[in-house]
Each structure stands twice: as C-alpha cells, then as structure tokens.
Design a protein around this nucleic acid. Structure first.
Lengths: 189, 189
DNA sequence: ATCGTTGGCCAACATCTGTTGGCAAACAGT
DNA sequence: ACTGTTTGCCAACAGATGTTGGCCAACGAT
C-alpha cells in the first residue's frame, strides 16, 4: 500500500510528535499510543504509516551536520568556527531536537548508536581528513577525530541531555567561547 | 522485614547481576526476571530484597571517584594526573561497570541523571574549588568545571558506551596521553 | 523442643505494550 | 456515476512486565 498526499499532514504530525516524545522520554518510554494521541491520530495508523515502532524511529531521525570546510578558514579561527557551528546546530529547534533524541537513545539503542557513529565518526573524521590532506599521519588524524568527537558529544551531553548546571545555565555564546580554545587545541595537535 | 546474613550471598548475586544487566541493556530493557535468572534467584525475591525495580537500581549504583588533590601535584603534571585517574576509574572492572551503568541510564532516568550531577558537579567542581582557593573568580572556576566534566563525560561516552572506533580501539595509555593536554589546557585557563 | 521470623518457590494478577483485522466513510481516476 | 483504493476508527489480541499473596522449609533464640 502506498500513501497519498492526503495523509501527509497526519504523517508529519506523527513524526513531529515522535521526535518530541523520543527526545523527552527516550526510545523505550515513548509509547506509540502517546505519540498517536499527541498527534491526534489513532495508534494503529502510526503502525500503518511507518510499519513498526522501529520504522517510526528510523523515519524520525535524519540529520546532516553540514560541517564547514575548515581549509577555507584561517588556522587561528578554526576552533571558534567549529564551536560556533556546534552551538548553532544544537540550539536550533529542529536540528537540536533530532540530535538530542539521538544522543538520548544511543546508549540503549544499537540503531541510534549506529547513526551517531556514522554522523560523528564519518562526518567529523571526514572533515579532518579533508583538512589534513593525505600526506599527513593518518593515525594521528584519527586520534584527533576521536578526541574532537568526544569533546563535542560530551558538551552536548552535559548541556542538552544531562543539563549539568554549569553548562546548561550558560548562554550559547558563553559555551562557544569556552569551547573554542579546547577545539583549537585539539586541531592544533 | 529485615534481612539476615543468610541471604546476603543471594542479595550480592542479585546486585552483581543487576549491574551487569543495567550496564549491558539499559535501565528499561533490563528485566527483573532476567536479573533474577542470572543470579539464580526467583524474581519475586528481588522485589522482596529491594522493594522495587527502582530500589534495586538505587542499591546497585554507588560510586566514589576518589579524585586526587591537585594542589599537591606540580602544575605541569595536573592534566596527565587527572587523565590517568580517569582511565583507571573507567577501566577498573567494578568502578567502570557502575560508571558505565550510570552513563547509560542517565539520559532516560532522572534518578541516574541526578546521581551523575552529584558525582560530576559536586566532586569535580569541589576538586577545582579546592585547587583554586576562594580568592579566585568563582564563576570562571564553575565554567572550567563544566568544560572539564564535559570532556570527561564525552570521552567516557565515546569510549565505553557508544564505542566510537577511534576511542574504543585505543589503549588506556593512548587515551590518557590524548586526554592529558586537553585537560591541562582546561586547567590552565 | 517450640515458636516466631526469614528464605525461597510457585502461581497468579493487573497492567501496559506493540500490533492486527475488520468495517464504514472519503477520496481519485475513468 | 461507478469502482477500486486510501483513510480512519474501533475493538481485540498476544505477549511481556512488575508486583503480590500464599505456602512450606530452614533457621535462631529461648
């Protein structure tokens, strides 16, 4: 069975409600019934639309970090540029919601963890490889990507998921400012 | 009803099985029945011992980071000292299991998040406040504690929970070596 | 030796979960 | 206008989960 444009508003409402519910309560606690109720739709329709709860999760999580090309940024500004892009991504309502949802679900869902591995290992590592070129020591670049991903994920975890007081209370500018020198240090090697 | 020493082996077995299950599958997916079976105990006994599944979780999570007093460490060695203590904590079978369990459960359990907030905000911030003294700028110290906690949590998340390739594949010494300059930079201001 | 307490097992309950099938109304193409 | 498809709702199912109560054996103190 295919779907027509007629049901698209309902499907979009379900997706939005799913993102909200998954991000707010985690992948297990979020129930199909609650999502359907939030979207004003029958629970069975959710299954009809997306096949299963897993299918719904897969449809609700799609993200592209659109990382900048650091080669076109002065070496001394790269940490700040990356820090700025980072807080922009996470503070944006839609992008941030998907990222929060992924980070929340990853520890207990192998599928979400895979998505994060793709996003951060492939995209972040790709960015660094593009920056360093192929002539450099690739093992060192990989190590840097690991540390870089850890710092970024850790900041996101502290600020947006766990809401540790120092990071959650700070403004976006303050976070970017605190993060810039750390990222600069990792990039500088 | 109180408990005597007679049932202590069984209670300990349940606690160990609970730590394993919670760390391996998260707080929701881990079932009382599976934990009881792993411990060789009846499911109802788990409830009798710990009141509820939440009570079991609370009993299974207890941790003391035993952070070093950085004031007694040469300023240039503090990053490396902290990095070393960190990997020791997380690579230790028992301590690491509890920490992994907390980090896994925190995104979906307010109780686990509270525990992490205590451990990292209070203990880590306390360590920095002891180091900086009261004459310094306390707001700056709080910011540093936030970044420090983020880096530590992020590394743990990448290496032990999400198992991102670059961090998970590295040896403990390599992780400590990669982490030391970052922590040193955060400490140095 | 006796009695109150604890330990352990069994079966069952109440609830919630994702999911399915059936049926009537609204639609789209001809 | 007619027909086949899509939409939506309702009820129900099948399975798993945390939890409870009842029963009997093992224990410890007197």
């Amino acid at each position: 069975m295919a779907f027509t444009a007629r049901s698209q508003p309902a499907r979009d409402a379900v997706l939005a409600a799913a993102r909200r519910a998954f991000a707010a309560q985690g992948i297990e606690r979020a129930t199909v019934r609650a999502i359907a109720a939030d979207a004003g739709v029958d629970p069975s329709m959710v299954i009809r639309y997306f096949g299963s709860k897993d299918g719904l999760f897969e449809a609700a999580t799609t993200i592209d970090l659109a990382l900048p090309d650091l080669a076109q940024v002065p070496a001394s500004d790269r940490g700040a540029t990356l820090a700025r892009r980072f807080v922009d991504l996470w503070d944006d309502p839609t992008t941030g919601e998907v990222l929060t949802l992924l980070l929340r679900a990853a520890p207990t869902s192998e599928r979400a963890a895979d998505r994060i591995r793709d996003v951060f290992a492939v995209q972040v590592l790709g960015m660094l490889l593009r920056l360093d070129g192929t002539d450099d020591d690739e093992a060192a670049t990989r190590r840097r990507a690991g540390v870089l991903g850890s710092v970024i994920l850790g900041t996101a975890l502290s600020r947006y998921v766990l809401r540790l007081p120092p990071m959650a209370a700070a403004s976006a500018d303050e976070v970017a400012e605190s993060l810039a020198p750390v990222l600069q240090g990792v990039l500088g090697g």
